[in-house]
Design a protein around this nucleic acid. Structure first.
Lengths: 221, 221
DNA sequence: CCGGCCACCTACCACATGGTAGACAGTGCG
DNA sequence: CGCACTGTCTACCATGTGGTAGGTGGCCGG
């Protein structure tokens, strides 16, 4: 990811400029971050260069200097988000443990990710809605991770620790449930209620309990 | 809902003109249908009057004749969708039966709805993303239904047929899972694969199995 | 036959959008 | 100093947007 500075080349759609020089983030990265937030919350179509630039205190032409087009910016945002997601999930997936404990660890890390950086999950949603090429890139980048997770689940199911299900379907169900819980905050907010942190934690506990009862095959009593 | 024809008044934002005159749908309804499809797939911001009008073979000013503004059109679409959703879920919720059978009936009806009219679920997603007032209207309209479903689940759990969970949370989890399965089609499509109907049916069966194992408390053997 | 109304149209507008061209300050280097 | 280069800016443009003003054909009741 080392990038000597300077504008992003058109070719592969610019993943560059992730470096930080001093205490202050480079402009290209600040743009990336702001774009991620805006794409995730207001959508791709709802995001304008002017609004982005305003939020950053710069002019839109400076954005176009770093990213030659809106599509290139989206591509860069998606690639960055895919890398961040991969990193976050990778580490929790690589941790020791087996059976439910490990599943729970991954789910917890998704919860944490959804709290700390909800825009990442929002971008996934937006990318899927946009379809190719954004969706293809993102899902493609996450593919290997999904494969590993599916393989793990397969082993657990075969060894009798979990109920038999199609692994990738199971993964999607888990993902949907967890993301649904995070989106729930949006629903509540849409209704005007501002959910407090304590109740959210309680709800997560309950979701874990729910998932557990769905997945874990208790040893015959 | 009877509407004598003529443009929608500004006031409450135009829910009118649901009537059908002959074999041909009224223009106002055709607009509503096309707008629903577009809002759900391309989003509110990604939908333009020109594109809508083109798809309908009319001019955009005709749309503005029936719906005085884009926001009014969205409102009308949301209200109509809320009514359709309510109707579809209402009937399955009112059917006889208890315990898992009744839950399964509702889930199946959501599946069916998601197949027949995926745009309805897409609009829910979009409305939540847009926030008030669209989200408030839609969720508000669906509120009573959710209450009834929650009450039913509460009874089932109290009587020992189901595992104890917070009813509304449980509903959201079920909804997320089911919708996630439907959105899965989008994911596959984003990857270029066109899922065949047979495998989708199989997947639904498995989702039902998964939900069942999560919810139903088997009588002690 | 005719006036009025309904539904749709053409013509137009102000504005925001993504994108281009080029000027200008700052910096490092020979 | 002179020069090239980098990053940001001002100025501008073509296009597409939601929305307005007003015209027109068809159909109706009188």
């Amino acid at each position: 990811m080392a990038h000597s500075g300077g504008p992003v080349l058109v070719g592969a759609g610019g993943r560059g400029a992730t470096d930080v020089v001093g205490g202050e983030a480079r402009t290209a990265d600040r743009i990336l971050e702001a774009a991620l937030l805006s794409f995730a919350s207001r959508g791709y179509g709802g995001t304008s260069f002017d609004a982005l630039a305003d939020a950053l205190g710069i002019r839109k032409q400076s954005i176009l200097y770093w990213y030659p087009s809106k599509e290139a910016l989206l591509q860069a945002v998606v690639d960055q988000a895919a890398a961040d997601l991969s990193d976050a999930l990778e580490s929790s997936l690589s941790r020791a443990g087996d059976g439910w404990a490990r599943v729970e660890a991954v789910v917890r890390s998704v919860f944490r990710l959804g709290s700390a950086r909800p825009e990442l999950l929002g971008l996934v949603r937006e990318a899927v809605r946009l379809g190719p090429p954004a969706a293809t890139r993102l899902i493609g980048a996450l593919g290997p991770l999904v494969d590993r997770a599916a393989a793990f689940l397969q082993v657990e199911m075969s060894s009798g620790h979990m109920r038999q299900h199609e692994p990738r379907l199971l993964l999607l169900a888990i993902y949907s449930t967890v993301v649904g819980m995070i989106t729930e905050v949006d629903v509540l907010r849409a209704l005007g209620e501002e959910p407090d942190a304590r109740s959210l934690v309680r709800r997560r506990q309950e979701i874990l309990r729910l998932l557990r009862s769905a997945l874990v095959l208790e040893p015959a009593s």
